[in-house]
């Protein structure tokens, strides 16, 4: 019986034209993605939008509550605090970091540097370290004790100990430092790849015209790197909006001064069993990402126009 079916199928396949067989194989080869995406990507995403309008504790009945979940989170000061925190930590962690990465890249690109590959490895190794490990190490580095390494170092400069984990700015600076540390080398190597692709004769021509080094940097290096800078800023923005592990581990739970949007979402869902408001938070995060991406998009477009 089985072999009979098999022969039938083979005969049918042989009857197909070559073109049809190719098309069939094409659909077959791409189907695993669409299958998995339907179950674990598209459906959950759409269901999040549905859940955002329901009241649900995870096991009982769902009840439709209209926009109440949104009004609940929008009137919760902690929700707004979490958005504020996310933006502040994101800016602190990426702004200075990208500038430092660019400086390191320019330094590494200089012809006179020896042991370039050693530096590359040293700068890159933080990025191989997991966020959990980074957050644990920095929790101890930024210990609130006087003897914490960062506090002890600051005291050498006459600065009194900072309560890193429980103060408004302390927590943000410590978390931003983790992000800085883990990504600065990575981004500097991306910038370095960009620098190496800038034709040398541009600099030679500028040199002949009497342009100083900083002028060359401002009028050749930065414009030529623009596509890479735009890309890095895009990814850094989206990554910043999704910060979760660092504040969870560093703040040992859900402290107000280090609450981020994803942490707020996670707490609503898996600590408070409020899956409706958690989904409303997820939808808000999605909209926020769209807003920030659009801002980035228009900013880079405007930069493009003013550059020409």
């Amino acid at each position: 019986m089985v072999s009979h079916n098999h022969t039938n199928a083979t005969v049918r396949l042989k009857g197909l034209s070559d073109k049809k067989k190719t098309a069939l194989a094409g659909y077959l080869f791409i189907s695993p993605f669409f299958l998995l995406f339907a179950i674990f990507g598209a459906f959950p995403m759409l269901f999040s939008f549905y859940l955002a309008f329901q009241k649900w504790n995870g096991f009982g009945e769902m009840t439709f509550v209209g926009v109440k979940n949104f009004s609940l989170i929008f009137t919760d000061p902690l929700f707004w605090k979490s958005i504020y925190n996310t933006i502040v930590i994101g800016l602190l962690g990426t702004g200075p970091q990208l500038i430092a990465a660019l400086i390191l890249a320019v330094a590494l690109n200089s012809a006179m540097v020896k042991f370039k590959s050693v530096f590359r490895v040293a700068y890159f190794v933080p990025n191989v370290t997991s966020i959990v490990a980074v957050a644990i190490v920095f929790t101890v580095l930024f210990s609130e004790q006087e003897a914490g390494l960062v506090n002890a170092t600051l005291s050498l400069f006459g600065i009194s100990p900072v309560s890193w984990q429980t103060s408004e700015w302390g927590a943000k600076i410590a978390i931003a430092t983790m992000i800085f540390w883990r990504w600065v080398g990575y981004n500097s190597i991306i910038f370095l790849a960009g620098l190496q692709s800038i034709p040398k004769d541009l600099y030679e021509a500028a040199e002949i015209d009497g342009a100083k080094k900083w002028q060359q940097f401002l009028f050749i290096t930065v414009p030529m790197l623009k596509p890479i800078i735009v890309f890095v800023v895009f990814t850094a923005t989206i990554g910043s909006l999704q910060i979760f592990a660092e504040p969870l581990i560093f703040g040992s739970g859900f402290r107000e001064e280090s609450m981020t949007i994803v942490l707020y979402l996670w707490r609503e869902a898996f600590s408070n069993n409020a899956f409706g408001t958690a989904s409303a938070t997820a939808v808000s995060l999605f909209l926020l990402i769209i807003v920030f991406t659009t801002i980035n998009f228009f900013a880079s477009n405007r930069l493009d126009k003013s550059g020409k």
Binding site: A23, S48, W266
Partner: peptide, 26 residues
């Protein structure tokens, strides 16, 4: 070669922009 190839590929590119947290709860 198959019908809708470019469109399906575009769909795949668009799915990359969805933040993973959006569907976390479902």
């Amino acid at each position: 070669q198959f019908k809708g190839r470019e469109k399906l590929f575009a769909v795949i590119l668009i799915t990359m922009m969805i933040p993973p947290q959006l569907g976390l709860i479902p």
